[in-house]
Design a protein around this nucleic acid. Structure first.
Lengths: 210, 210
DNA sequence: AGACGTATCATACGTCGGTATAGCTTGCGC
DNA sequence: GCGCAAGCTATACCGACGTATGATACGTCT
């Protein structure tokens, strides 16, 4: 019962080249019940593949080899959207602005107050849960949509545009009964049990959007 | 034909207590075809009520009376979400991070490159158009939804949950034909011509969301 | 009292969506 | 060539949806 609440599989990754700092932060984060993993460089973190796991990243700006800023770029180019909290002793405004524009959760100046860091971690983990939940829903919808035949996809798009079966039939130059067949199997494959549910799934896929 | 493209009714508001800086920025912004209005203080800008008009705000952090930071807070508490580009000669990292977290588009250090400023303005205006378009759609949907009777709203919510007329009738303890009546007038009042369209409108109002 | 909006219900009719059954063609891979 | 998925079509039937017609009841505002 030690592992309660929001620390399930979530890991707070700490990447800093200074061992003392790392350990200090590690203790702080673990004191509120989060799991942690430390790395001394961006390369080590990347090699671990942990960036795909649920959690967040506490990242020093200055690092040997790949810098924190570069790591953010690299992660950004992937689908990996792990929330990042930057830490630095020597930060300037343009640097902080750049990272924030790129989606960083926070940018803390060492030495920071413990409370600041803990709040940033909370925000980051919360954001990760939201993004992850959204991404999973989209991925599931995408998977189902990809299982449709080309014709089924085509029909589904027109259905999402609010067109009636007979109109779709006319547009595609086929008979209405054919549309009914395609529509029926499309809906079944998508796993929707009602029109509203289907429309919400389609919205996740940018189908028939305004 | 001088007023083309994206400068229709959009105004770039410049708030800075230094007249020379103001004029310099004003010239720059107008040189690329944007309309501008200058203010020497946050109070003057607020008094003008311009924050509800389409456009963006170039805001000095240091201002007499209400500071730029405070102005951002004030605007944030309203529905007014005018995109803000901060400018300052003496900014620190915590300040820039705070404003970025509060939604600022950019945070520029004087002296800045002209290109930086123009790009920030473009981003800000683009964001304003998007937010404004979204806000208008929501407002329109809200207006129509508010014109429904309580019963119609209730029925519509259940329809958005994917429930059939007969199920809704059972849940509300009335006959199915009654539901059909309410549903029919609700759909008509909402102005939707198809289920997908209706669901999308409902999504804007957080009706029957997952 | 009368007008109005809201809510309720019934009957009837027409449209739309959905499925089952059954048959046809085409193209691809083995 | 054979099997198979995809696509197309027809007939038939049923349930869900929608609307028109007509009616009752209740509360509010004037």
């Amino acid at each position: 019962m030690l592992d309660t609440k929001n620390s399930m599989a979530e890991v707070v990754y700490i990447v800093d080249d200074d061992a003392a700092t790392r350990i200090s932060i590690d203790n702080l984060i673990r004191s509120v019940g989060h799991k942690t993993v430390q790395y001394g460089s961006a390369v080590d973190f990347l090699a671990s593949g942990g960036f795909e796991r649920p959690g967040c990243l506490l990242l020093d700006v200055r690092l040997p080899g790949i810098s924190g800023l570069e790591l953010q770029q690299i992660l950004g180019k992937q689908q990996a959207t792990m929330p990042i909290v930057f830490m630095t002793g020597h930060g300037d405004v343009p640097m902080s602005v750049k990272t924030m524009k790129a989606g960083a959760v926070d940018f803390l100046i060492k030495p920071f107050r413990e409370q600041e860091m803990l709040e940033a971690v909370d925000t980051a983990l919360k954001r990760d849960r939201l993004l992850r939940a959204e991404r999973d829903k989209v991925a599931e919808a995408r998977k189902r949509f990809d299982s449709l035949t080309p014709r089924e996809r085509q029909v589904l798009r027109l259905v999402m545009d609010g067109k009636m079966n007979k109109q779709i039939a006319f547009e595609l130059g086929v008979s209405e009964i054919t549309i009914k067949i395609h529509r029926g199997s499309a809906v079944k494959k998508m796993g929707a049990t009602s029109m509203p549910e289907l429309v919400k799934m389609a919205a996740l896929l940018d189908l028939g959007e305004d």
